[in-house]
Design a protein around this nucleic acid. Structure first.
Lengths: 359, 359
DNA sequence: TTGAAAGCGTTACCAC
DNA sequence: GTGGTAACGCTTTCAA
């Protein structure tokens, strides 16, 4: 009775003030049903008669009703939001990963709360804010979230998944490109191309993924050493990205001249940016791939395909990673205590000019 | 009395179940004040005694209290969320713009709700969802939002701002790189380099920004025509991005050979991707910049600086654009009826190898 | 299947 | 300055 009256008043005020928000009560009044039925119509949760549903739908669309996600989330103690932590979008691989994540997130009916973090403090603040929005999950593509904060998420029952970075925490899942497979593909390609003096190029302050790729690669090379007589030298970039790779090439060429290092014929690289920089740096010194050395990068970003580079690379399957990540979140959302999932996503070799296909 | 009892019960259940959410009431109980005072402490809205504030703060931090943004937003009818519409993050300029937007959004205390739209329908759905989260504003960096939907935002009192795309709607603000200034800088550079046979390269289905740049450029060239005896030919790319530019170069070279077009010596390009592709395409045909022609691009993306390209470009100031955009949203949030703002952001010329600095 | 009513956690207005 | 209380708009038992 009182509710009904209130609803009527709402509709009146709607007519006079300039289009206020239309609520479930308004729809209920118009359809001649209860607020509860309206809710049921829109949540496919709880049973409702087809004809009631129909009435509600009609009333709703006539009024232009839309669920208020804030109220819904408050009530359910969970929003349809997924928090995404990114860093350095200027790296094309990062942005393509983000792109895949956004696509997947929307496809599954969520909205993405995206934060770029520049340092550790920001990360903490960010994750805290995510919990304040009662997100359905958090995807960390960058930075090392402090154990304590992540545990806070877990306590709030918010699933967390890391992409290309391991977090040794219980209940935190993990999606990663198969770096072992990448190492195998790269090495096979270099071996077939008769490379024996191998090099590994990475940035000194590399990400977890970069370090892991290096370790995996070294282990593999060592295991094949007896059979092929391989050597593996570390080339270190002291700056990240393109310029880091370019400088590393200059350093390397200088060492070659002074004779403090011997010539390498097959170089594998932690990421595409470094690889492109290295390629250009070598060019400046007069060395061309694949004539004088073979070069393989990681991350098959757009630029690697361009005419000036045509880089042979290991391609990461970002859409598979994204869909696995969201799947992890949903699974853990359903059962918070399920075993930790570690999903390895297969990678593939894209042969281009800097280490062309054999035969 | 009842409230007090309830609070106590909450705290108890907290002890027994595994850390439930702590509410303002819990803090109020612990601090021995009312829920209202807790709210005042956290919103700098309404007056509160310093010592009360202190008590609340202490209690809050001991309990680990954090405001529930969902409840806050529901009550205020507005969340601290800003919706951002992007497209094709694979274009480095887009992702760098997004990066600037994210930075600005967080700096101003908001969170970003990011959606990548692939088509018109998605855009509509997206904007609708933004309103359902009661966002404080919407930034459109891509796509043409349907008039009706934007009006819906306006009716919901949600400010909308477009970046690098004009929306001829009242109450919708607009931030744009100064394309006229870009045209002037580019033309001045080409004229100083003695270029007279000019070309304009753009994608057939270009964005609003691209088309606008072309129009502005043509107008400017025509105004200088009498003085310098200029010609301006359109080069059209039938595909977007790098490959489009490359193909356009091939087409152009072919036309040169058949004599169906005369040689151009100064080419200005709607964006960096096209420009890099064009440069590579010309290389494949044996033409080098700046020896055989000058080339200037738009968008000073990372790749343009790389050794293999060293492209002279017009640089857009993404952080200025981002901060203006958010400023527009806040201004309109404060006064929904203020006059439409159109903010032109100055651009600058970055001289590199493809059209080197004169003297 | 449906409706009434009790929250969800805040904020803001109104007395004191 | 502070506390009580009515919203905010929705979901979800619990009876009927």
């Amino acid at each position: 009775m009182f509710e009904g009256k209130k609803g009527t008043m709402n509709k009146q005020s709607k007519t006079f003030t300039n289009r206020q928000t239309v609520t479930a009560q308004d729809v209920a009044d118009k359809a001649g049903v209860s607020r509860a039925s309206v809710s049921r119509t829109f949540t496919s949760n709880g049973s409702i008669a087809p004809e009631t549903r129909e009435k509600v739908m009609r009333a709703a669309s006539e009024l232009g009703y839309q669920v208020n996600f804030l109220a819904q989330g408050l009530n359910r103690k969970r929003s349809q939001l997924i928090g995404v932590v990114v860093a350095r979008l200027s790296d094309p691989f990062r942005s393509s990963l983000l792109e895949s994540l956004l696509t997947e997130i929307h496809e599954k009916g969520y909205q993405a709360l995206v934060t770029e973090v520049k340092n550790q403090e920001q990360l903490e603040e960010t994750i805290r804010q995510f919990t304040q929005y009662r997100v359905s999950g958090v995807v960390v593509t960058s930075g090392q979230p402090p154990t304590e904060l992540v545990s806070e998420c877990v306590q709030h029952n918010i699933p967390v998944v890391g992409i290309n970075r391991h977090m040794d925490l219980p209940y935190v899942d993990f999606v990663c490109s198969d770096n072992k497979m990448g190492a195998e593909l790269a090495l096979a390609q270099l071996l077939q191309s008769k490379c024996r003096a191998l090099g590994w190029l990475n940035y000194k302050g590399s990400t977890w993924a970069g370090v892991n790729r290096g370790k995996t690669y070294r282990r593999l090379v060592e295991s094949k050493q007896p059979e092929f007589g391989l050597t593996l030298s570390d080339l270190t970039a002291f700056e990240d990205g393109y310029e880091g790779g370019r400088a590393a090439a200059h350093d390397y060429c200088l060492s070659l001249k002074t004779g403090s290092v011997s010539k390498l014929d097959g170089i594998f690289c932690a990421n595409a940016q470094l690889a492109c920089g290295f390629l250009d740096g070598m060019r400046e010194c007069g060395f061309e791939a694949p004539k004088e050395f073979h070069l393989i990068g990681f991350d098959d970003t757009q630029i690697t395909a361009q005419y000036s580079y045509r880089l042979t690379t290991i391609r990461q399957n970002t859409s598979a990673m994204a869909s696995q990540a969201i799947a992890c979140l949903e699974a853990r959302g359903a059962d918070a205590n399920s075993a930790q999932r570690i999903e390895m996503i297969p990678v593939s070799l894209v042969c281009r000019h800097t280490s062309p296909m054999n035969d």
